Amino acid sequence: MTLETPTKLRLAFMGTPDFAVPALRALHAAGHDIVAVYSQPPRRAGRGKKLTPSPVQQVAEELRLEVRVPVSLKSEEAQAEFDALDLNAAVVAAYGLILPQAILDAPKMGCLNIHGSLLPRWRGAAPVQRAILAGDSETGITIMQMEAGLDTGPMLLKSSTPVAEKTAGALTEELAQTGADLMVQYLASPNDYLPEVQHDALATYAKKITKEEAHVNFNQPAADVLNQVRAFNPVPGAFFVHEGERYRIHSAEIVAESGPAGTVIDDQMTIGCADQAIKPILIQKAGKPAMPLQAFLNGTKIPVGTSLQ
Rank of each mutant, 00 (worst) to 15 (best):
L3Y: 14
L9W: 02
R10A: 01
F13W: 02
T16D: 07
P17E: 05
F19D: 01
V21P: 07
L24V: 00
H28N: 12
H28M: 00
A29W: 00
A29L: 07
V35G: 09
R43Q: 15
R43A: 15
G48A: 09
K49Y: 07
Q57T: 12
V59G: 04
E61T: 15
E62C: 04
E66Q: 14
R68L: 13
R68E: 13
P70D: 12
V71Q: 12
S72D: 14
S72N: 11
E77S: 13
E81C: 02
D83R: 00
A84E: 06
N88C: 00
V91I: 09
V91C: 00
Y95S: 00
P100K: 12
P107R: 07
G110Q: 06
C111E: 02
C111D: 02
C111Q: 07
H115I: 05
R121W: 06
W122S: 02
W122F: 12
R123I: 09
R123G: 07
A125C: 04
S137W: 03
G140P: 03
E147W: 06
A148T: 15
G149N: 07
L150R: 08
P154A: 15
L157D: 09
K158H: 06
S159L: 14
P162D: 07
A164H: 12
A170T: 08
A170V: 06
L171T: 11
T172R: 04
L175T: 02
Q177H: 02
M183R: 09
V184M: 05
V184I: 01
Y186D: 08
A188E: 13
N191G: 13
Y193R: 11
E196K: 14
A201L: 09
L202N: 10
L202P: 00
L202K: 07
A203V: 01
T204W: 02
Y205V: 05
A206F: 00
A206R: 05
A206D: 03
K207W: 04
K208N: 04
T210D: 13
K211Q: 06
V216N: 12
N217S: 15
F218A: 11
Q220I: 14
Q220H: 08
Q220E: 08
Q220F: 09
Q220Y: 09
P221Q: 11
L226H: 10
L226K: 12
N227S: 15
V229S: 03
V235Q: 14
G237T: 06
G237V: 00
A238K: 05
A238W: 05
F239V: 04
E243M: 08
G244I: 00
Y247L: 05
R248H: 09
R248T: 05
I249V: 15
E253Q: 11
I254L: 10
I254A: 04
A256Y: 01
E257P: 00
E257S: 13
S258Q: 04
S258G: 06
P260D: 09
A261I: 01
A261K: 01
G262H: 00
D267P: 08
D267F: 04
M269Q: 08
I271A: 01
G272M: 04
Q276R: 12
K279L: 03
I281S: 04
L282V: 05
G287V: 02
K288Q: 15
M291Y: 03
L293R: 06
Q294T: 13
A295G: 14
F296D: 10
F296A: 10
L297R: 15
L297W: 02
N298Y: 02
K301M: 13
P303Q: 05
